[in-house]
Design a protein around this nucleic acid. Structure first.
Lengths: 345, 345
DNA sequence: TACCGTTATGTAATCGATTACACATCACTG
DNA sequence: CAGTGATGTGTAATCGATTACATAACGGTA
């Protein structure tokens, strides 16, 4: 009775070949003759052999593992992306290591820890708040560390990234609102430190200008992507006279908070003002009123990011050039409606 | 200029000691004299040395990694738990590997793959739909694989688990509704295959009986934990005459779907019927009406599960005995209100 | 026949850390 | 002073797979 786990030697002995041959069958079957290959495979099956990852990793100096840096694991938004990543990676026999980059400002040093320790071969970063210098230090290491950004990214970083078409999304929303007769537009932004916030805010200003709508400085409210931010914004909005009739929020959660706050203040959505979100998270559909928003293919973004990284890991060119931009589309629901001019008190 | 990564030998040379001593300083400092310890630590710092995990793993036959089996990564419910897990594990210098047990029915073989390959030292399972036999096979391996269940669990499995006090939660809800004057109760259940569904459903029946309320077979609706399930239930509810005035749902998402569906059908919540959820996910607060539900400490459950597993990994006794049951509490919001008898048409 | 190129396989070095065992030193004790 | 135990350190074996290099066998060609 074999008591310990089977190893290559055991397989080799049973198949009557050398360990080298066993290894070859497992890693590059084409160089082995048909007959021996079958004998070895049979022996593998009979012994129940499984390669020892640690040994392989040591020898080959790889880990077949990818590390995902997630700004906040508690945020449901990211779970879909992780899901997409995981699926694609595991299909390629890679594992997914997850860490919450959360409250700590990640330094090159900390990132290197994973790489240098041989725990991960590459990174998928979902966190755009990482310092560019640190990033470049990581990337300029020898050998360079394969990195792919997903969803968020860092301005100035030259490497592949997968993202939604934020500009197009915002444009669709503004145009949609415009067509419903809205002329005065407001925005509740995401966190100041976040690329997506900036992109969406800029796109918003641009889009409103393009169709000739009105924006005022006081209608650009700060926030982060949270429900709480939406609520705070609601307080300000409630206090406005002749404010916007349409509010474009940087995230669904902000929109939820805003609508909740407005409703509480007696302002009706969409009768008095229209509100839009961004992301189309699951809940938007059952929210009351159901939220008009922009849908992103989060799962697919995860898949795509994984594919991108795998390509890098296999030594493919940094598919440099432009970031991969995933299309988005408008989901028209009942949080938006025809503009109604406020009584010009 | 050193071109390659520093290794123990490099550190040893610089500190003027042997590799054994370096290793000792890093792993069990107490056996090394003060002076050498400092010299070594300095050398470690100066060289920028980091242990090679693969080498260590190979030698020690451990991975300092824990695998989390998540039934559905896309479900926001789990991200909080992962977050709690990750925090606790990384504090103990363990890494978190994540895999979606999703659509595939996991077999012992597949689980063993991770363990046997030396990719993980233990498991945290969030998926209660794993077959008991398979599980026992895994656990009865030599050496046994440390496993901790979190949130969900498998009936009959003898091992540590961390869970919410589902019974107490349901009881609180029913009593709360009873106090508001409700006498006829209905339930929308979770998936048939899930322990939580059963627990909550049984607890519901028990609680209603205990206070003398009325249940009918037709008021126990099937579902899964999804919004869609809630919507389907709504259709049935809308068709009822003299149905329950209070609906207890197995999850917040079901409640959302149910309320959305009822509202659409012209039934008002809470004026016509009261509805409760379970989980207190973030969105409950801004939902319209805000949802009365049961709060679970998901983060803490993650922490606790991690601590449990770490204890096992360190050779502690399977802290057997009873599962760890985390307290829950009622969050009273506006989806529930005084019972109003339906017109006895 | 002698030589060459393929193809298939084996031998043994190697990856980098941990650790069993051996050894040296020193302070005490009887 | 010899003996004992505690303490600190070094030498070298070891974990299990991969792979550079060597070798063998064979068919074909000059």
């Amino acid at each position: 009775m074999k008591t310990s786990k089977p190893k290559v030697v055991d397989v080799a002995r049973m198949a009557g070949v050398s360990t080298a041959t066993v290894s070859r069958v497992l890693n590059d079957p084409s160089v082995v003759s048909e007959a021996t290959r079958e004998a070895v495979l049979k022996a593998v099956k009979d012994t129940g052999y499984r390669v020892n990852r640690a040994a392989r990793n040591l020898r080959t100096n790889t880990s077949r593992t990818v590390l995902a840096l997630v700004p906040n694991l508690s945020n449901p938004f990211f779970s879909n992306i992780l899901s997409g990543l995981e699926r694609e990676l595991s299909a390629a026999d890679y594992s997914l290591l997850v860490t919450d980059s959360g409250d700590v400002q990640l330094t090159a040093d900390q990132i290197q820890r994973y790489i240098a320790a041989g725990q991960a071969d590459g990174l998928v970063i979902l966190d755009g708040s990482i310092d560019l210098n640190e990033l470049q230090m990581v990337q300029s290491a020898v050998p360079p560390v394969p990195i792919v950004f997903a969803c968020e990214w860092v301005e100035g970083f030259s490497g592949p990234s997968v993202r939604a078409d934020n500009e197009a999304g915002i444009r669709m929303l503004v145009q949609h609102l415009w067509q419903q007769g809205h002329r005065r537009f407001g925005h509740v932004a995401g966190p100041d430190t976040n690329v997506l916030s900036h992109r969406r805010q800029n796109a918003f200003e641009q889009a409103v200008q393009d169709c000739g709508g009105e924006i005022q400085h006081g209608w650009m409210l700060p926030g982060d992507f949270s429900i709480a931010a939406g609520k705070e914004a609601a307080a300000r909005v409630a206090a406005m006279r002749d404010g916007p009739t349409a509010w474009v929020c940087a995230s669904d959660q902000i929109a939820f908070g805003l609508i909740a706050g407005l409703t509480e203040a007696g302002i009706k959505v969409p009768d008095d003002v229209s509100v839009t979100g961004f992301d189309n998270i699951e809940m938007t559909e059952v929210f009351n009123p159901p939220l008009t928003t922009i849908h992103q293919h989060r799962n697919k973004m995860g898949n795509e990011a994984a594919r991108c990284l795998l390509q890098l890991l296999r030594g493919g060119q940094p598919s440099q050039a432009a970031p991969t931009v995933m299309p988005v589309y408008l989901v028209d629901r009942q949080s938006t409606g025809p503009a109604r001019e406020k009584a010009q008190a």
